[in-house]
Design a protein around this nucleic acid. Structure first.
Lengths: 232, 232
DNA sequence: CGCTGTTGGGTACAACGTACGCATACGAGT
DNA sequence: ACTCGTATGCGTACGTTGTACCCAACAGCG
């Protein structure tokens, strides 16, 4: 008779681990991981705060689970017949949109402990498989793949570091950087000699991290190719 | 050793902004930035907690000030006659030891707002000056320099992400990554086909981030060179 | 002397992660 | 049907954090 339960309609609002993880991901995507609070997750699920700990041991463990889930949602495409360079481009593309959509995973993915699960190893292998086309040893191909990942992570870092620091998802924050101001034509001081040439050119490419990423990946691949020819 | 006296010898223990920043840096270097607490800084200086706010508006502002200070302590060497490739290597070397010594600056340095002050612009210009040797435009040289920075940051990220997450300076944490375990000979599952070849080889280079950094920088430089020849 | 502005600091509060223990539910054994 | 072990939900409470606010001491200056 005392059925005053705040049920969610007919849904069995079973509190399950993946429900917790899912709610946390939604919160993190909106407000950044720093704004994810155990209490907020619980509120969103309509449960008590401490109930979450029945399914998640830690906030740290929660972040790992969230990152794993995101990893599963962005698999590399099936092997197919993509060339090694196409694979590098595809990896950059997939990772870019992944990080764009869920910036907070960067720290988790970059730390070898949480990343480098079986899922990641498969992705790594997919890249290594591509680089083998260059007739290098497996170890060298792995080196190349890891370097590529580092490069992608570094480029993404420039975009999301601010949000990771301030723990906000605000993408506005137009407290423009010195380089941006310089390109826009109002440097805050006397610019160094060479950069002075760029003042006011408002070169859009130097401010576009995605362009920089593609450019960097191409350069890296050119370097890999040169190295492979040299070793051959 | 732990001379609890607030006095610093005969020095007038004047509470000044740079004293606050310095104490915070010392704390961050030992225990990681996450362990830096306003109360701990105050204790170390022998002052009240709230007194710090007379010289630092925010904890965020404090981080920026700390990062600026670190930047000043690790300048790029004077121009000299280093070739473009030597400059790239030097930049990698300087940044590497900087981040090794003060991992917590990575997030601040990577966010364009806090970095990219006049100091950083000079360093950038130093790199651009080198790349001009390749007979590319200033914009292209700047692209190359930014790509190099991204690569360095990405490689460092792999090393320090863990510490940034857990907010500890513990370098132990041998909860080995999947790749490390695989190289050591005990993968936690069936490894993917190509990586299977590496099982037990304990290839030290694939686990050595510094080696990977050097390798990546060389590949990037090779790529830049190839690109320059193509554009010429 | 008083007046004013600068610097130091104690108290207090809201928000956080989470330890702990109690309440309820449910399936199995008797 | 009764009991009991175990799994699950949750309210309370504690320690720690950043920092808003207000007051005390003091310096320079008329």
């Amino acid at each position: 008779m005392t059925d005053a339960e705040p049920e969610r309609g007919s849904e069995p609002n079973k509190l399950t681990r993946s429900a917790v993880v899912g709610a946390a991901i939604e919160l993190a995507d909106v407000d950044g991981f720093g704004a994810v609070t155990m209490r907020k997750i619980a509120d969103r699920l309509g449960v008590g705060t401490m109930s979450l700990y029945r399914h998640v041991s830690d906030k740290d463990a929660l972040l790992m689970a969230m990152s794993d889930e995101i990893g599963l949602r962005f698999p590399y495409p099936p092997a197919g017949d993509a060339t090694w360079r196409e694979r590098a481009r595809i990896a950059a593309e997939v990772d870019w949109t992944l990080y764009q959509r869920h910036p907070w995973v960067l720290l988790a993915f970059a730390s070898p402990r949480s990343s480098m699960g079986p899922q990641s190893l498969n992705c790594l292998d997919w890249l290594v498989d591509g680089f083998m086309e260059l007739k290098v040893t497996t170890a060298e191909a792995t080196e190349m793949a890891l370097s590529l990942w580092n490069h992608i992570a570094g480029t993404v870092l420039g975009v999301v570091a601010e949000r990771l620091l301030h723990d906000r998802a605000d993408d506005d924050t137009e407290g423009q950087s010195g380089l941006t101001r310089l390109l826009a034509g109002n440097p805050d001081g006397v610019p160094p000699p060479h950069l002075a040439e760029l003042v006011g050119t408002s070169n859009p490419q130097l401010n576009d991290p995605r362009y920089l990423l593609d450019q960097g990946v191409e350069a890296l691949c050119d370097g890999f190719e040169a190295r492979a020819h040299r070793l051959r």
